[in-house]
């Protein structure tokens, strides 16, 4: 198994707060790696360090052998690492279809292309791609709706579609089911399972243990900015340190 993402000795402090201390993590190709931990453990900070939103104080983040530290968000995207945000980051003023065509265009056009004299209506391949993904996400009947007017659950699914249409080699999901109703959560789990079957590597940050244990191949537990345990779901479930730090001693 080859390593897709390798996080080495990453440190990050905000003022006096040691948000991340000496994080080491390897993500294997094709695997779904969950990062769990209590609030404020540094999960989102770690994700932000991977994707260029934050620059760690020290350490490296290597994606397919290339150091990502200091790269612009759009360069990281084109390297093949795509993030789906916790609060849905969509284009609220555009239609659902356009929301997905934009990332599809990014994949084809690169970081900049002046295609001002091509008709959007002639971009059949891009449109077909977007429609296909949207139907896959169960958003087929919404494609001409204003994205901003959709329900929160639909927006999150839309954002997932925006990530998937780029066929990333690594997908980073920040709490993909937070704020979703139970049936929406189950639907999202099914979707993510199907993506897994296609062999896409994923990092998932999640609070919902049901989601974590139904999807993850490996789990890392963050507490107070440090990784206190890594392993298979079964190993994590039985780990007393994890139960102590994360679950306050309760049985999983």
């Amino acid at each position: 198994m080859s390593i897709v993402l390798s996080i080495k000795n990453v440190d990050k402090t905000f003022g006096g707060l040691h948000a991340l201390g000496d994080i080491n993590l390897d993500i294997e190709e094709g695997k779904t790696h969950a990062i769990i931990g209590p609030n404020g453990a540094g999960k989102s900070t770690l994700l932000n360090c991977c994707i260029g939103r934050l620059i760690p104080d020290s350490g490296t983040v290597e994606f397919e052998g290339k150091n990502m530290i200091g790269m612009q968000p759009h360069e990281i995207n084109h390297a093949g690492m795509v993030r789906v945000f916790q609060t849905p980051e969509i284009f609220p003023d555009l239609t659902v279809l356009q929301n997905v065509m934009i990332p599809a265009l990014a994949r084809r056009d690169g970081t900049f292309k002046f295609n001002a004299f091509v008709s959007l209506a002639s971009e059949k391949a891009i449109e077909a791609d977007a429609v296909h993904i949207l139907e896959d996400m169960g958003l087929g009947e919404h494609i001409h709706k204003h994205a901003g007017s959709m329900s929160r659950g639909d927006k999150r699914r839309l954002e997932l579609a925006m990530g998937l249409v780029q066929h990333p080699r690594l997908l980073l999901l920040d709490e993909p089911t937070a704020g979703m109703a139970r049936h929406d959560t189950n639907r999202t789990i099914d979707l993510l399972k199907r993506i897994k079957e296609r062999g896409m590597t994923k990092i998932i940050i999640e609070h919902d243990m049901h989601v974590v244990f139904s999807l993850a191949d490996t789990i890392s537990v963050l507490a107070q900015g440090r990784i206190i345990a890594s392993g298979t779901p079964d190993e994590i479930r039985g780990n007393p340190k994890v139960q102590e730090a994360y679950l306050g001693g309760a049985e999983l």
Binding site: I51, H74, L94, I102, A106, K113, N115, M162
Partner: peptide
């Protein structure tokens, strides 16, 4: 054009455009 759509998307959510 696609270019025009991208400009509209920048107006709608520029941060998202960068991460896209």
């Amino acid at each position: 054009s696609p270019f025009g759509l991208k400009l509209l998307a920048i107006k709608s959510n520029q941060t998202r455009m960068k991460y896209t």
